[in-house]
Amino acid sequence: MNSLNAIWETRDVFLSGAGVSLLLVGLCLAISLPLATLAHVALQESAAGFARAARLLLDVMRCVPFLLLAYVVYYGLPAVGIRPEAFWAGLSSLVVYHTAYFIEILRSAALCVPQDTLVAADAFGFPRYKRYTRIVFPQLFAIAAPVLVNQSVMVIKDSALLMIITVQEITFAANFVSANYFSPFAPFLFAMLLYWLMSLLTDRLVGRLGKLRMR
């Protein structure tokens, strides 16, 4: 009961943490998904040599543990004269890291788009832009949606790691309450509940990408 009281009394801390987490995840998805889509198109349309070099870079990015990347951005950049605030360091780490994953997800989904439907678009004289918007993207996102949703949930989970670089998000709030109220259990359970709710919301929103229908 005391634990529940502690959560109620510190609701402002949790609310603030949830707001920061939501903002981090929302901004990351709002930037990463369009950025990954643009990068996917650029890689599809670019010369094979350039695309190979770019993919190598993406592979390197995907192999780096996220926590290390966040450390390097927050604690490493000041060494070269750039001192980002914790929130912006966290957000840019999330964006760079997950955009690399989203690009790879779109690349693998593109392999599953029936090629004959694209050939048909060429045969009917679709300009490049409309070929993508009308024919490619609806099929691409329908195929990629389940994996994009998974990756978006990973964004939520990785946002919890940003506590290490002092971003005051949900896990930071839970840790704060746990330490100050000597309650090791309830604050973290409550944080898990908040993450679960965020995941449900993300599932619904990102999942809609898979249901694009054309008039």
Binding site: P114, D116, A120, A121, A123, F124, G125, Q139, M214
Partner: peptide, 23 residues
């Protein structure tokens, strides 16, 4: 690209595997 698209736009093509747009 634009000229080619315009030239193709005057030709109707029917494929062996239909190639309808599934969405």
């Amino acid at each position: 690209r634009k000229e080619l698209a315009a030239a193709r736009g005057r030709i109707g093509t029917v494929f062996q595997n239909f190639a309808l747009w599934p969405h």
